[in-house]
């Protein structure tokens, strides 16, 4: 894509009206090393113009409870630092459940965590740790929202294939994942959950073609063991991989897998 082509797309980009593959191409151009000829300023102008359209909306008075809800969802640590008040267990539990209830709206993945949270709340009664866990998870979700949007856009493409990733047959790990693969668009994303962070080790993603194992980057799980990663499109140029795997490697990973396979999924030949 040339700068002139990008600048033609910039208007639709700012309106979020591009198809996922067009958007990905535009983002590749924007993140490519220059020299660019006015791409950033064209995009700035497009954003400002698009945003000006919001002025046509007649403001609506928010309910007073709306701010209260937001305030409750601000970092619990900050509120705790400001007040020595000891919250009763039921209030903490209610806040934990509220956080989880909001988080569930972010998607099916969080629905699992809510169920888990509820079970743990019932079993252990350790509401404070659950509150922190939910808040951390929510933070992690927000931080990866751009990648999530990309994943959602990729999932919407009719030619995208879903490759389930699971532990090898002999393993009893709880971790699960999915790879979204679209060779037409040279796009692939991997989403995993319940990966336990390991001190001094990293999870590494691999594309497997025949006997070749191609390192595709590290997965750094956040709270809840959740991680999302986009595969470098250049690794998809040779074509479809036979399998996708995640291994546990010494910190920093490597060019060849040395550690155990944690997740693996076979890509069908269709």
């Amino acid at each position: 894509m040339t700068c002139a082509e990008f600048q033609e797309l910039a208007w639709a980009y700012a309106l979020d009206a591009l198809e996922p593959q067009e958007r990905a191409a535009a983002e590749r151009h924007l993140s490519s090393e220059g020299p660019h000829q006015g791409c950033e300023s064209a995009l700035d102008e497009a954003y400002r113009t698009a945003a000006a359209l919001s002025a046509t909306v007649q403001p609506t008075r928010p309910d007073r409870r709306l701010w209260q809800s937001i305030e409750r969802r601000l970092q619990p640590a900050q509120r705790g630092a400001r007040s020595n008040r000891q919250w009763p267990a039921w209030a903490i539990a209610a806040a934990a459940l509220l956080l989880c209830s909001v988080a569930i709206l972010r998607g099916l993945a969080l629905r699992e965590s809510l169920a888990k949270a509820n079970r743990q709340l019932a079993q252990a009664g350790n509401v404070q740790s659950e509150l922190k866990r939910c808040a951390d998870e929510l933070n992690a979700m927000r931080q990866s929202s751009d990648l999530q949007r990309s994943a959602l856009a990729l999932l919407e493409l009719p030619t995208t294939r879903l490759v389930p990733l699971g532990p090898p047959a002999q393993a009893a790990a709880a971790s699960r994942g999915s790879a979204l693969l679209n060779l037409d668009q040279r796009m692939a994303m991997v989403l995993v959950s319940a990966l336990e962070p390991q001190v001094g080790k990293d999870y590494e993603l691999w594309l497997i073609r025949g006997n070749a194992k191609i390192a595709a980057g590290l997965l750094r799980p956040g709270a809840g063991g959740r991680a999302i990663a986009q595969v470098d499109p250049r690794l998809l140029t040779p074509g479809q991989p036979d399998a996708i795997a995640v291994t546990l490697e010494p910190a920093g990973g490597g060019e060849q897998p040395r550690g155990p396979i944690v997740l693996v999924g076979t890509v069908s030949k269709t």
Partner: peptide
Amino acid sequence: AGRALALALRILRTRSEAEEVVQETFL
């Protein structure tokens, strides 16, 4: 918040969803 809520409402058409969007926005 008034304009954010109005904009979300115009796009989503339901008040409860628009309010959730406003919460997400300010977080």
